[in-house]
């Protein structure tokens, strides 16, 4: 007969999750799609953090990137175009014990779901957000997105995109209760992982914009940055991301940036060349909505019954004979 301590130990050994424990199926993204790099980084994070798969939920919208939850062997919620944030908020509110990730794209987040995105920043619920930004609609085949560069020719902009793109990082920094904003790129996997890990470890709404390449429709868009490391600006700080010596040899353009400095974060975010990579802003003191709304105690059926009867009392007309004439009062 095993003691409960032994069982506990066995269970611990049992739950030593490997990378494969988080993998599900073969991703059906294009070869060279940045989504693959993000998936690898996230699976590594789950393994490193030993997240119990049954306690982990990936919520997505619709789009190429939103297929992500299908490739994770965790709970997944592949819902509606643009609506990942409110679904994730509902989950987190009722289940703070779950690790909630949101996977969204530039169309999903910055176009059809923008209202939810702005308010998700404001709610500041504890979840990790991966915004896959390839600057194009891929799944619906080559239409300009809100983050497409001005002048981009696509199926809906044959003479070139008319408008300046939206800057997702700046938008985040414009919301008063923003608590974590970072930018990563798919072609520096080491930093991609470290930035997602930093986001995961932040308690609050951790937004990571991942600049990624679409090999199908925008294969060359980021070539100037991919091919010239000097056009990248790596942000490091003792309280942020540390950059390895190996990486530093390639990416020499770096800045010590304190993630608490919101004004500097805004300046960095506003420049797209050189392209910043790292944690731009973090505020550990921003309260989370789920903490503000948490019920003060668990409620048993008899407590619900008592509370309900107190409500009935407010509206009750009692029969003439005896104030306690109704058995309802005793419930």
């Amino acid at each position: 007969m095993t003691t409960s301590a032994t069982r506990c130990l066995l269970r611990t050994l049992d739950e030593n999750y490997a990378l494969e424990d988080y993998q599900s199926g073969v991703p059906r993204w294009c070869i060279g799609c940045g989504d693959n790099a993000i998936l690898a980084a996230v699976q590594r994070l789950c393994r490193d953090e030993q997240l119990p798969p049954e306690k982990t939920v990936f919520v997505s919208g619709i789009g190429c990137s939103s297929r992500f939850p299908h490739y994770m062997h965790t709970y997944g919620f592949h819902g509606l175009h643009g609506r990942a944030f409110p679904v994730a908020e509902g989950i987190k509110l009722k289940r703070p014990d779950l690790h909630v990730f949101v996977v969204t794209g530039d169309g999903d987040c910055c176009s059809i779901g923008t209202a939810h995105w702005i308010h998700a920043i404001r709610y500041n619920m504890n979840m990790t957000v991966l915004m896959h930004d390839n600057g194009i609609y891929g799944l619906t085949k080559n239409q300009a997105s809100p983050t497409s560069p001005q002048g981009l020719k696509s199926n809906t902009t044959p003479r070139g995109a008319h408008l300046e793109p939206i800057n997702p990082v700046s938008v985040n920094l414009g919301i008063r209760n923003v608590s974590f904003v970072a930018q990563a790129v798919d072609w520096i996997p080491e930093l991609l992982h470290d930035i997602i890990a930093a986001a995961y470890h932040h308690k609050g709404f951790s937004f990571v914009r991942v600049v990624q390449r679409c090999p199908e429709y925008l294969p060359d868009r980021y070539d100037p940055w991919v091919k010239n490391p000097d056009r990248m600006l790596l942000l490091s700080h003792a309280d942020g991301i540390q950059i390895s010596p190996e990486l530093s040899r390639v990416y020499r353009h770096q800045e010590k940036h304190d993630p608490a400095d919101r004004n500097r974060a805004r300046e960095i975010a506003s420049v797209s060349d050189p392209m910043p990579v790292g944690v731009l802003y973090r505020n550990r003191n921003m309260p989370c909505y789920e903490d503000l709304r948490e019920p003060d105690k668990p409620y048993t059926p008899s407590m619900v019954g008592a509370a309900l009867n107190r409500e009935f009392d407010k509206f009750t007309i009692w029969p003439e004979n005896g104030e306690d004439g109704g058995a309802g009062k005793r419930g």
Binding site: R83, P86, G90, L93, K94, A115, H116
Partner: peptide, 13 residues
């Protein structure tokens, strides 16, 4: 829309 999606998220979990 968010109200309904939020309720769905809470229900799902």
């Amino acid at each position: 829309i968010a109200a309904c999606a939020f309720a769905i998220g809470a229900s799902y979990a």
